[in-house]
Write a protein that binds this DNA or RNA. Structure first.
Lengths: 336, 336
DNA sequence: CTGTTAGCGCATTCAT
DNA sequence: ATGAATGCGCTAACAG
């Protein structure tokens, strides 16, 4: 930092000259060693050390038309729900030599469009989005370009390309069945106002069959909003028996508010969340919730993208990872 | 998807031909409109529409030596602690036209080195790392290349380049003072085994002045580990009065375990966390903790990187964002 | 197994 | 205000 370094970065050209081989031989020694003699490889590696060469992937990608980058679009990374997916996606991609470019859409469709364009501009080899892509312009552009795309965390019969998710409507129905089996009539919903939360809510209401008191909070949901939601629900239905919450954070807030009001869970009020957050098993009482294998979604999405990039046929472009209800103390005195 | 598209992507060349101007005029119309006549710009834009042109940033970056990408290295994005930083970083960078490439080091120094190389290979215009860079090889390489680097979430007199953080030792000392002021003698520590957690622990012990019962759990910490930690601490010191936890997740676990054991918080046991997680204000009882403005760290890091990229002088390359203790019910019956 | 040739798509010189 | 030439650093084709 003292003297402004001449800033002459070594290129492959310098490495080749240092090693006494041609440019392309140096290139192959580094990225395709099977085609080059052992001794030559060693000489090239020595030259790399000597020159301090660091390859320029920008140049390589321009020529090879493979950027080794995959874009991931999420509403906001602070949404705990999607973290295991992004984490697994990043890990799996890094293991395959790809890096992840992150974009935050902020639940805004126009931003999604702009970000998709930015990612196409960077020639991302694949794109993984959270939820479905709704803009028809974006859908047709992606299809036309033939870029591998994975939509996640939702289900559709007509994905842009590939899909890894599950049915939110089915989740809502499953929880409704669970409540009905236990004979709870006076049930309520605390739900975020996001698209997928609305699908679960619709499934729940449909399966319950009657009008259900509902408190809708604006995404992203939180413990605080859960406390507010229960307050609101108890006004609408003071004799509430059970609440379905569209996230574990909301459910945690409902638990806290119930505790503050002296309501025993589950005797006075049963609570079911969604997401199986890490804290769900350890709240007091422990929280019944719906588990979705978010990490599996990320891993599967990575595999699909990498397969398609490497030209391997993708046998199953639509993967339903399903879900399962995890029964704990917030709905059952006898659960674990 | 039926017929394999001929896949002829329009280039700037096609746009220029369509608009009846030269290549460079088309280029300027799009990225430097000040230099081009209004009418020409309109013609170029029409040509862009007609051809469906999407610029290739790879090519532009190769020539201009500005990739408009910034790398961010985090231990793991699932660590809630750093989420506001990554979120603010991504947002601020997107607003300035930069995209973020994410790398996960997994608390592994060799992975950090490999990832740094990958990011240099991609010619990231700047690099933001969580914590300090410890590898001397990486430090000198980054310095030699003159890449803007921001180390975050820690403090050092000799950063690689720039730094935005705070002193973890000071945090530990501040909590120790807080405990001593309240006359608590039999105190304990529940701490993760990560580097910065260790710094806080050291500061706490040093300020307390005597040996302190400690339960060390392996990062990343969680509610579950917090429950275990309190169990362990109560064996070492059954008459424990107060616990400092190196994260709010751990503290939440300590609260849960205390509740399960019938210990009243704060009367029987005072609890202090770290991080001011979103749930900390809403646990029952609410959690005293240390607030650090993670989003400010992200925004500041983005500003430093962008300033340096644009050649603006950086007045203050080391920014201490400080911290503050937020007193709540878990240490004070009279707090909010 | 190695080398020669020819670009990838764009932006930075210079010129006009 | 516009244009022509040049090359960023690398790799896909062919050749030898």
């Amino acid at each position: 930092m003292d003297a402004p370094t001449p800033f002459k970065v070594a290129t492959l050209h310098d490495v080749a000259r240092e090693a006494g081989v041609s440019l392309i031989t140096a290139s192959r020694a580094l990225s395709n060693p099977g085609m080059v003699a052992e001794r030559t490889i060693a000489r090239v590696h020595a030259a790399v050390q000597a020159t301090g060469y660091i390859p320029n992937l920008l140049a390589g990608s321009l020529k090879s038309k493979r950027s080794l980058m995959v874009a991931s679009l999420v509403p906001a990374i602070s949404v705990a729900q999607f973290l295991p997916t992004v984490q697994a996606l990043t890990e799996s991609l890094e293991a395959a030599g790809y890096q992840l470019i992150l974009g935050q859409t902020g639940y805004d469709h126009s931003r999604e469009d702009a970000l998709l364009n930015a990612m196409i501009s960077r020639r991302a080899d694949g794109i993984v989005v959270t939820g479905l892509i709704h803009s028809t312009a974006a859908r047709s552009r992606l299809r036309q370009l033939g870029i591998p795309v994975v939509e996640t965390w939702d289900l559709s019969d007509h994905p842009v390309d590939m899909l890894v998710g599950f049915s939110h409507t089915a989740v809502g129905r499953a929880i409704a069945s669970y409540f009905r089996e236990r004979g709870w009539q006076r049930v309520g919903i605390a739900s975020g106002d996001d698209h997928r939360g609305a699908l679960r809510r619709a499934g729940f209401e449909q399966a319950i069959g009657v009008e259900v008191p509902t408190a809708v909070v604006s995404a992203p949901s939180s413990l605080e909003l859960g406390r507010q939601a229960l307050t609101e629900l108890l006004i609408k239905q003071p004799a509430l028996q059970a609440v379905y919450c569209s996230s574990d954070s909301l459910a945690q807030g409902v638990l806290a508010e119930a505790q503050a009001r002296g309501l025993k869970v589950p005797q006075d009020l049963a609570v079911c969340g969604f997401g199986n957050a890490d804290f769900a098993a350890h709240t007091y009482p422990s929280l019944t919730t719906v588990h979705v294998d978010g990490a599996a979604i990320g891993r599967t999405a990575a595999r699909l993208i990498v397969d398609r990039c490497q030209g391997n046929p993708v046998a199953e472009p639509i993967v339903d990872v399903g879900f399962r209800i995890i029964e704990r103390r917030s709905t059952s005195s006898t659960a674990s």
